[in-house]
Design a protein around this nucleic acid. Structure first.
Length: 815
DNA sequence: AGCACGCCGACT
DNA sequence: GTCGGCGTGCTC
């Protein structure tokens, strides 16, 4: 009986985005399983692929053999195979791309070809001689090197007549850390060791007294012996030294204080019961846990997970990368110990792989990590928690452009598990689904131990300027900072912009220094007197004269974190400031280090961008200042108001989380804007209703779905030409509306001109199918090398709710 | 995506 | 002639 495997190969292209049939050779039958990562011949080369099906026959003309199976346990479970195929459809990506996004990077293929001297001599002619010499010296060289040396045709000839050999290497990048263990051999007689070998006796005593086996480094440290001593014992047959594979546990040297469940408040208890109901009854449900900052959501998570573990099921916890701090990890490790695997971007590729394997092998039951941890290969999921669910980092910005919420919903439906979306400031779509009963909804309105909310005050900076204050700190903020620090308490200052100033401008001709590769102003950085592009990283020295008019009246304008830091020093002599932004936290571990030293009171002020807005919990912080609240209010994005509201609420939540009450000062030029007013007045309900109504009026998600097609090309005209063709193809259909082509706010990035076409569509199966088929047509169009087209879906995949009822519900609830 | 094949213009 | 450029088509 023959066995045929259907393999999705590692070639991300339109023509190869389907399974190819391969014969499973006899010796691999049983080893080749669904989800296996296999090496296969594909055309003239060898590549990796994933087994998506196994059958007994094939309609293909000729079958090649599978060459190898790369892992003992298939990296993809059957569930993930299905999910990958669903993702390919929903996100317009190749199936292989979806698969790649679900597994650790070390499992991705690494292909290289090497040239060796062959069995026959290289014929003596000019070109080949150099190669001959090279290969005699080095024994092998890369394919590219050889091709460059002798030319393509000659190399091909040499390969054909076997003068040189091509060795293909299909590697995985797996590196397994190995460590030596020392094992005592049963029934040894230590009298066989000469008395003068004192160290050997000591080591044997240690082993006999204590353990029968121990890692070599531990043994050496404990006895003060060296490697040679142990080697000598091995030669005497007293011990055996063996190499064992070992997980690189990034937390192996850390100890965690065990934590016990805390008593829940009445509110928390209610939330806990809502969450554990579907877990107990084992059915799918999504619950929005809408809890104000400091309301103790984490404790509810922990106790809900406990319930899942009792049912012998598993849980995934997603947190935004930025709040995956040691504080957070400690709490989970403290409660669940070695049942937890942690996946975050600071791990090395090898460490990540090891954590992932613990999950795949069923050695842990809880996975905590950033976005991609949503693919944790559990087989019996009971619960998925997405903390700070409104965070934009849950959306992947490269293909496959998925949102972790959508994957969570899909997996939970597959496993009949619960999804908990936790946030103090839910995304508008989640709030909407909660209101319309697509999700269950629980709210936590009180802070733990009845701690009061901070008082929030807004300051109109236009008035400040009128009254003669030309600094970036209002009178109110200045005195508050002074008071707070003199009480020995701490301040958090927030500014959504790094660098020193926002842009560099010539005062003679008005020229703004722009990036040569992107349509964006360069940002001035004071420390090394450079201007940098925050899109592509381009850096140059700050111009001393205007490139346009040669005037030397060049100045920087606007405010960044670096400048605030400097101004703080001038305003408050002797003040200790810690600045946290992309520039000061780029090094590994610096994020943690800065936070720790602030927590230990080594600074009075923590000044930072986005990254200090959430999750931080420092008892001594009683004042939060927002330098410029409106910096992102008017970005050309329909979510900019929502984002401003969320950010301000989150930052405010950093104040007064413990005994001392907190105070928040928000400086703004738009004091009367509803989002800022509603943050100040703690009017969350009103904000959500108003914003939803606006979305409805202007026809934006969640009231419709949105595709954004971005066409980019090195030639602006060609980009526009193709954009117009795409828009025309899509236009004139029922059920969806085409906008554009328009130039996006950043119309050039890295030397590529960008044009966008947007499609607003109703959440209707037929409509989506129609757009999908149109997209297929677009994909068929001839492409030139420089043209790139990407499509991003912003809508609710997998929410089965009648949109028309939802519309009615919202109008009703608001009136 | 690679890679081969094949067609074509440009040079020793 | 043959070297190398690029368009086309295929990969179980």
């Amino acid at each position: 009986m023959i066995q045929v495997a259907k393999v999705v190969v590692d070639v991300p292209s339109k023509g190869t985005d389907r399974p190819f049939d391969y014969l499973v050779p006899e010796e691999l039958i049983g080893e080749v399983q669904l989800g296996s990562r296999v090496e296969v011949p594909f055309g003239p080369r060898k590549i990796l692929g994933y087994v998506v099906g196994i059958s007994l026959s094939s309609s293909a003309q000729k079958l090649k053999n599978i060459l190898d199976v790369k892992d003992i346990l298939p990296p993809l479970t059957q569930e993930l195979l299905q999910l990958g195929q669903a993702m390919a459809e929903e996100y317009f990506c190749h199936t292989i791309t979806a698969f790649q996004s679900m597994i650790p990077a070390v499992l991705k293929g690494k292909y290289q070809k090497k040239i060796h001297l062959g069995s026959k001599a290289i014929p003596f002619d000019g070109a080949a001689e150099g190669l001959q010499q090279l290969l005699e010296k080095k024994s092998s060289c890369s394919y590219e090197e050889a091709e460059q040396l002798v030319g393509r045709a000659v190399l091909r000839k040499l390969i054909q007549n076997q003068s040189v050999l091509v060795e293909e290497h299909v590697g995985d990048r797996v590196t397994k850390e190995r460590i030596s263990w020392v094992r005592l051999i049963d029934q040894v007689d230590i009298r066989m060791i000469p008395a003068r070998a004192k160290k050997q006796h000591e080591v044997m005593q240690y082993l006999l007294n204590d353990l029968k086996e121990i890692p070599l480094p531990t043994l050496l440290a404990a006895t003060g012996a060296n490697r040679q001593t142990v080697k000598a014992l091995e030669e005497r047959g007293m011990v055996r030294i063996e190499e064992r594979e070992q997980y690189r546990d990034p937390y192996r040297n850390a100890s965690f204080v065990p934590s016990v469940p805390l008593a829940l408040t009445e509110e928390q208890q209610k939330a806990y019961e809502t969450i554990t109901k579907p877990i107990k009854e084992e059915h799918y449900e999504t619950i929005l846990l809408h809890g104000v900052t400091g309301s103790g959501k984490t404790e509810i998570y922990l106790q809900s997970i406990e319930e899942v573990l009792n049912k012998e099921k598993e849980a995934i916890v997603l947190v935004p990368e930025i709040s995956l701090t040691p504080q957070m990890v400690d709490r989970f490790k403290g409660r669940f110990g070695d049942k937890v695997a942690v996946l975050h971007s600071r791990l090395s590729a090898g460490e990540r792989y090891d954590e992932w394997r613990k999950i795949r092998r069923g050695e842990v039951q809880v996975a905590i990590g950033a976005r991609s941890a949503i693919f944790a290969p559990f087989t019996n999921l009971g619960l998925i928690i997405i903390d700070e669910e409104h965070e934009s980092s849950y959306k992947q910005e490269e293909s496959p452009r998925y949102h972790a919420r959508e994957i969570a919903r899909w997996r939970a439906q597959f496993h009949q598990a619960a999804v908990v979306l936790g946030s103090a400031t839910p995304s508008l779509e989640s709030y909407f689904h909660a209101r319309t009963n697509v999700y269950s909804w629980v709210t936590l309105q009180e802070r733990v131990q009845g701690r009061p909310f901070p008082t929030i005050k807004t300051v109109d900076m236009r008035e400040e300027l009128k009254s003669g204050n030309r600094t970036m700190f209002s009178k109110d903020l200045t005195t508050s900072i002074q008071e707070t620090i003199s009480r020995g308490e701490q301040v958090v200052l927030f500014l959504n912009r790094r660098g020193y100033a926002t842009f560099v401008l010539c005062r003679s001709c008005g020229e703004v220094a722009n990036c040569e590769h992107c349509d964006i102003a360069l940002t001035y950085h004071h420390t090394n007197r450079t201007v940098r592009c925050h899109y592509c990283g381009y850096t140059e020295n700050v111009p001393t004269s205007c490139p346009n008019c040669q005037s030397e009246h060049i100045r920087h304008f606007g405010t960044g974190t670096q400048k605030v830091e400097e101004e703080l020093g001038k305003h408050f002599p002797g003040i200790r400031v810690i600045r946290m932004d992309m520039d000061t936290t780029s090094k590994k571990g610096s994020h943690e280090r800065l936070l720790r030293s602030f927590g230990e009171g080594e600074a009075d002020i923590l000044l930072g961008t986005q990254m200090i807005a959430k999750g931080l919990d420092f008892p001594k912080v009683t004042l939060v200042g927002v330098i410029a609240a409106d910096s992102m209010l008017h970005l050309p994005d329909f979510r900019s108001v929502e984002r401003t509201y969320q950010l301000l609420t989150q930052v405010s939540g950093r104040a007064g989380r413990h005994e001392q009450p907190g105070k928040v000062i928000i400086q703004t030029y738009q004091e009367d804007h509803y989002s800022i007013q509603m943050v100040a007045n703690h009017e969350s309900e009103t904000f959500y209703r108003k914003e939803l109504l606006l979305r409805k009026q202007h026809h934006y998600p969640p009231f419709c779905g949105l595709f954004t097609i971005t066409i980019s090309h090195t030639d602006r005209v060609l980009a526009m030409k193709r954009a117009v063709e795409i828009a025309n193809l899509l236009k004139g259909n029922n059920g969806y509306e085409v906008l554009g082509p328009v130039a996006p706010s950043v119309s050039k990035i890295k030397d590529r001109y960008r044009i966008q076409v947007m499609v607003k569509y109703t959440h209707d199966f037929e409509v989506i199918r129609e757009i999908q088929s149109k997209w297929r047509t677009i994909e068929e169009w001839p492409k030139d090398k420089e043209l790139r087209i990407q499509i991003d879906r912003d809508g609710e995949i997998g929410v089965s709710a009648n949109v028309h009822t939802q519309h009615r519900e919202i109008s009703r609830s608001h009136s």
